[in-house]
C-alpha cells in the first residue's frame, strides 16, 4: 500500500507536469519541465508555515488531512477492487474539501473559489450516471467484477461509449486549466488554494496528485479492462495528452454557464440511462 501510495503521488505529480507541458507546447510556449510539480511540492514542504490570523484554525489544518485521507482511501478501494460507488462518494466529497479549503481561510479569493466549487456540484452527477450505466451492463459495481466482465466481453469503451464520455467529462472538469475549472480562475488568484501555503500547500498538491492518478487509472480500469503495466502507462499518458489538448484549445467558461452545460450533459445522460433501462 505504501509503495502504491508513493507511486500514485509521484505518478500524479509527473502527469500534472506533463499536462502543463503539453498545454504550453500546444500554445507554442516552451512551458515548465515535466518534473516541475514534483519540485513545487518539495519546495513547499520546506517553506515556513503558519495559520493566517483570520482563518478558522481547526478547519484550516484539518481539511488538508481530510483531502489526503479521502484520496488515499479511494486509492485503496481501487487497488482492492472494491465498489466504485465508494469512489463516486469520495469524488463528490472532494467538492466539500475544496469548499473547506476556500472558506476556512476567511480570504475573499478563497471564499469565491469555494462558492464556485459548490455551485458546480452538478458536474459530479454525470459520474453517477456513468456508474449507473456500468451497473446496467455488468450487473455489479465492484471494480474487480467490472474488470473481469471486460476480460470476457471486451472493453466497455466500445459497449457503452456515452458512459465513457460522461466520465471523461468529469475528469476533464477536475483538470487544471480546463474549460470547467472555474474554481481556479485566474481572477481569483489561486481560487480555493490561495491562502494555503507551506506544508499545507504541499499536502494539497499530494492530494491532487493521488486524485489525478486515481481518476485516470480508474477510467482505464473501467473502460479498457485489464492491461499490462506497460500498456497501462502508455494508455494513461495518451488519455492525459488528449485531456491536455482539450484544455489547451478551449477558453474557460463563465461560472454559471459552466454549471448549466454540465447540468445539460447530466440530463442527456439520464435520458441515455432511461433508454438503457427501457430497451432490454
Amino acid at each position: 500500500m505504501i509503495e502504491a501510495l508513493f507511486a500514485a503521488v509521484l505518478g500524479g505529480l509527473l502527469l500534472l507536469g506533463l499536462h502543463r507541458k503539453v498545454i504550453a507546447r500546444v500554445q507554442q510556449r516552451p512551458g515548465p519541465p515535466v518534473w516541475q510539480e514534483v519540485l513545487h511540492t518539495l519546495k513547499f514542504s520546506f517553506k515556513s508555515t503558519w495559520v493566517p490570523e483570520t482563518a478558522s484554525p481547526g478547519l484550516f489544518v484539518g481539511i488538508v488531512l481530510v483531502a489526503i485521507g479521502i484520496w488515499t482511501a479511494a486509492l485503496a478501494v481501487v487497488l482492492a477492487g472494491g465498489s466504485i460507488l465508494i469512489i463516486f462518494g469520495v469524488y463528490m466529497l472532494h467538492k466539500i474539501v475544496e469548499h473547506g479549503f476556500g472558506l476556512s481561510s476567511g480570504s475573499p479569493y478563497g471564499k469565491f473559489g469555494a462558492v464556485r466549487s459548490v455551485i458546480s456540484a452538478a458536474s459530479e452527477i454525470p459520474l453517477f450516471v456513468s456508474v449507473a450505466a456500468i451497473a446496467v451492463f455488468t450487473g455489479s459495481l465492484a471494480i474487480s467484477d467490472i474488470v473481469a466482465y471486460q476480460a470476457v466481453n471486451g472493453p466497455l469503451l466500445i459497449i457503452a461509449p456515452p458512459a465513457a464520455f460522461a466520465m471523461y467529462l468529469v475528469i476533464l472538469s477536475k483538470m487544471p486549466f480546463s474549460p470547467f475549472a472555474i474554481v481556479e480562475g485566474k481572477e481569483l488568484v489561486s481560487g480555493y488554494k490561495t491562502e494555503h501555503f507551506g506544508v499545507w500547500r504541499a499536502g494539497l498538491e499530494v492530494a491532487n496528485a493521488i486524485k489525478t492518478s486515481v481518476l485516470l487509472g480508474l477510467f482505464l480500469l473501467l473502460f479498457l479492462g485489464p492491461l499490462s503495466p506497460f500498456a497501462f502507462v502508455v494508455a494513461i499518458v495518451i488519455l492525459l495528452v488528449s485531456l491536455s489538448f482539450v484544455c489547451a484549445v478551449t477558453p474557460m467558461l463563465a461560472p454559471f454557464d459552466s454549471v448549466t452545460i454540465q447540468a445539460l450533459v447530466t440530463v442527456v445522460m439520464l435520458g441515455y440511462l432511461v433508454l438503457l433501462g427501457v430497451i432490454p
Binding site: 463563465a254 454559471f256 454557464d257 454549471v259 448549466t260 452545460i261 447540468a263 445539460l264
Partner: peptide, 11 residues
C-alpha cells in the same frame, strides 16, 4: 440559450 438558463437558475 445557455446563458438564459443560467440566469434563471442563479436567482
Amino acid at each position: 440559450i445557455i446563458r438564459r438558463i443560467s440566469d434563471v437558475l442563479s436567482n
